[in-house]
Amino acid sequence: MEHPTRIFIDTSKQLFQLHGVDAGEKVVIRRQLRRREMIPFFTRLAPTVIGLEACGGSHHWARELAGLGHQVMLLPAQYVKAYLKRGKNDGRDAEAGCEAMSRPTMRPVPVKTVQEQAVLMLLATRDRLVRSRTQLTNAIRGHAAEFGLIAPTGLDKIEPLLERVAADQALPDLARDLFAGLGRQLLALQAQIVEIDARMAAHHRADQTSRRLARIPSVGIVGAVMLAAKTPDPKAFRSARDFAAWLGLTPKDHSTAGKTRLGGITRAGDEALRAVLVCGAMAVIQNAKAGRGQPWPWLNRLLATKPTKQVAVALANKTARIAWRLMVSGQDYDPSRRLAAPSQQPA
């Protein structure tokens, strides 16, 4: 077998499809390996360039293959899709990936370390617990409403609702027992979330970048940890606008024939990170409307002419640009620069 200059691996749980070409773009590898065969095969292979789609498990394989002396590229799945020919199977997926990784303009995803993935697991665990808590409180409200018991909105209103249910002797014993069980589940979830938040706070205190990002008015501990953990090498972005575009906070471009047409935000990138930035912006806007906190002249001018949610996206865009600058320069947040108007607002 001739030595391949690059190999792409289409991964799955147990089967891995390989497609490799030599320096003349001739196919020299087209085979399928099982999981247990991966390490022995690439141990015998001379160092080469290996590509994988950036998906679940890909960072693990990237670290393993890099440890064997290979150069590993992780490609976003949407970039590989453009090179897929008619029909879809594992072989053609691997062929498309092999073609995609040869493009000089291809932008690979940085390989995460085990420590970085541990922090991402912490964030994902917290998100799952919060979603479970929301689902459970909605279930409690819904069941209570069937018995004519209505509570105001807010997480802090659930406990009084459960107390009303327990004291209502008109309810069947079965219903009150089930509500008590739901209440115990809620208490257990609350305790888990408190534990996760304590771990996140400890990580935040130990991470210098996260501490600096938390000084931005619309960024809290959760947002700072997410920005520091989910952002790849900040210096890989050419500008703050590129970073905002990576987060999906810049307008869609539908321009043609010399006519510029900008639409709503692209919503590309990490949805959770973008949502945290927008939620933080909404909190700042609510304080600004109520006259609380420090003044935001340009923000108040926008609120006078634009819808609130559109202004929140504009502020999230500005926050993302500030965060990028802090990560690249290593500087601390300067509150005096908050008075400057953003150079460009997303549509």
Rank of each mutant, 00 (worst) to 15 (best):
P40Y: 09
Q185F: 09
N287C: 10
P110M: 00
V225L: 14
L262C: 01
E116I: 03
V109N: 06
V313N: 01
K81L: 14
G293C: 14
I221S: 10
A46Q: 13
W246Q: 01
Q310R: 06
L68N: 15
M282G: 02
T250P: 04
M1Q: 05
S329K: 07
V130W: 04
W61C: 04
F179L: 08
G67L: 12
Q71T: 15
H70A: 06
S239W: 00
R44E: 15
R36W: 13
G280D: 14
A229C: 09
I196W: 04
A245Y: 00
A198D: 10
V49S: 09
S132N: 15
I140F: 08
A166L: 11
P47W: 05
R261S: 00
P76C: 03
V222I: 12
D233M: 05
E163T: 12
P342E: 00
V72G: 02
S58E: 12
A257H: 05
R338K: 15
S336D: 08
H70N: 04
L303K: 02
R164L: 11
A316R: 00
G148L: 13
G223H: 11
A240R: 01
T11G: 07
I150T: 09
R30Q: 13
R301M: 06
T11W: 10
Q32D: 05
V130K: 11
Q331V: 04
G223F: 13
R211K: 10
L15R: 15
D90M: 10
Q78H: 15
G24F: 03
A118T: 13
C55Q: 06
